[in-house]
Design a protein around this nucleic acid. Structure first.
Lengths: 336, 336
DNA sequence: GACGATAGTAGAACCGGTTTAGAGAGTTTG
DNA sequence: CAAACTCTCTAAACCGGTTCTACTATCGTC
């Protein structure tokens, strides 16, 4: 049951450990004949390198790290991560690597976790989600001299590769769709504006409202359904009540729909609503939720691929995912 | 920047590596004086054991594994895992251990992942969620001779410790609540009945309906909002339309609410609805969702603690979490 | 004062890989 | 034909811990 070691393979092949290592890692210095013989024997014995041994020798962990920072009450509501991780997995498992996941609920623990995982060599690099406009993790990871890849679209010049998706076009089609339906005053409920994708989405919203000649309202929230609901109340109570609300993510949109229902509004006639996450649960709300598609698994695959390249090659180019486009469902319609 | 090794500490203390190891692991054979001196020096040098080295020597990984199996289209909608993992984290980080997470979308990959993580010694044990009534993972992990802890309440005798939560009482209070409101015919939309907690919840439902003299209907689904919606349609179209529907989880309940709204039903007057997950998003639906509290973080903390004990001590007792109790919100009321 | 017991410590082996120096055989070169 | 060079391979060191064996000093005992 115990796995065969490289010494077992060497013994069986009648050669030294070192030669087996060279043969199995496709390194020069082994005759073609011996190499295939060793490879055949290794396969036959179901040999697989022990990651701890290899890691000790190479100073690598063969693992990627993902540290998710969520406030305690916000932890559960994010539909992004499961699919994202499934995507990461696809890029990882073929290479016998592994994902180390940590969920932390405060900033100190977050920094401590990055430190620990990096210094203990538990991971070779990090996937940085929820990137902040001025993200302290950049300095931290430079100090730790640890590779990372950023998910988002940072304004500044960042010393790590970036994986991004264009939302400008998606937001534009969403607003064009609303304008075409006859909406003239549209609100946006933002995510946590410290987060770079939240402020980007707000900027896209404002830019394209202006371009389309729409009146734009902004209500600040933080991606949580609680704040989303609260922002919705404010908008519906305000003097300039919008006929449509675009939420920075789907959970807030769902909470917004609930607020509207509570007031007896008829959706979408009295109020159109849209999200920006493309989440599956949005198919099953009432009305079903117009949103942008986001393909979290695609994010995961691509981010992991870039990070692996950075770790292996020492450098990696930025990558752009296909732009998010519009998913029209039942929650948007002509205003009454 | 490079971390101090045990040899550095030994040199600085003027003793041998071995003695440092004994001193820092609180093992006998070191004089009290020398021990504190070494400990002080180690702390001073910010020494921390290298997990790869320790793992290689001890044959352990100092990591726990969690393999989540979800169909591709169901991946995202589970509010359980993020909080669960946050709970696991609490039990782990103090001990400098780590969680290795894998999300897989088919059964073959699932088995392969357990094999790989175990044989490569990437983890020391597994947390088994979504336990099936006749779960193939039990045999697999016995074959691999790998510790595991089961989340659920299996009927059979299982060679692994079990962490369970009592839902019987919660289901009973939920049904009593509905009965008191005047409901007489109540339906249950089940989860995937292969899963042990799904069949348990159905059994509790049937038992307590009988005890309370309620007419019980069962509609089979699989925890996905899609099937939850479909089951709701069937129930509402059926000859014996219930006045209340209890869903095996919250996402299905949310989808059920949407179906009811779509038909112009007034909730809760025309139909009462309840979930069983205690999810936060249920606060922000319309109407807000009556449900059972589930405390996923508590599950995580406890399961990790039991698994660590099993790994350390070679055995661990079952653990029972506090029973789930009723959270009454707006989606249940007296039938019209 | 010789003896054994015991505490405290050094040193080496080991875990399972990778890497490097160098040995031996065969081939080219001046 | 000897020197230089290639090619293939072995042996040993190394990564950073843990653990086992054996040695030395100290102590108590008769």
């Amino acid at each position: 049951m115990a796995r065969a070691t490289i010494a077992d393979v060497a013994r069986r092949a009648g050669v030294s450990k070192g030669l087996v290592s060279l043969a199995l890692n496709d390194r020069p210095g082994v005759s073609a004949e011996t190499r295939t013989r060793i490879q055949r024997i290794a396969e036959d014995m179901d040999w697989r390198p022990n990651p701890a041994a290899r890691g000790l020798s190479a100073g690598r962990a063969f693992a990627l790290g993902l540290v998710v920072h969520r406030e305690r009450h916000t932890v559960e509501v994010d539909p992004f991560f499961a699919s994202f991780i499934a995507g990461v997995e696809e890029a990882l498992s073929q290479d016998n690597r592994v994902l180390v996941l940590s969920v932390v609920t405060d900033a100190d623990t977050e920094a401590e976790t990055y430190r620990r995982l990096s210094k203990d060599r538990r991971v070779d690099g990090f996937l940085l989600t929820d990137f902040l406009t001025d993200d302290h993790r950049v300095a931290l990871l430079r100090e730790l001299d640890t590779p990372a890849v950023i998910l988002g679209d940072p304004a500044e010049n960042i010393p790590f590769p970036v994986v991004s998706r264009d939302y400008a076009r998606g937001v534009e089609s969403l607003l064009a769709h609303l304008a075409e339906l006859g909406h003239r005053r549209i609100a946006h409920v933002t995510g946590d504006l410290q987060m770079q994708h939240a402020s980007r989405r707000r900027d896209h919203f404002l830019t394209h409202c202006r371009a389309l000649g729409l009146e734009a309202l902004i209500a600040e929230a933080d991606f949580s359904p609680e704040r989303g609901a609260q922002a919705t109340v404010e908008l519906l109570d305000g003097d300039h009540r919008p006929t449509a609300i675009v939420y920075a993510n789907d959970p807030m949109a769902i909470a917004g729909i609930a607020v509207a229902h509570e007031r007896g509004l008829n959706l979408p006639a009295d109020l159109s609503v849209a999200g920006m996450d493309g989440s599956d649960i949005g198919r099953y709300t009432y009305p079903s939720l117009t949103t942008l598609n986001n393909d979290p698994a695609g994010w995961g695959r691509q981010a992991a691929a870039v990070l692996l390249e950075l770790i292996e090659q020492g450098e990696a180019a930025d990558a752009a995912l296909p732009g998010a486009d519009l998913i029209i469902r039942g929650s948007t319609g002509a205003p009454a």
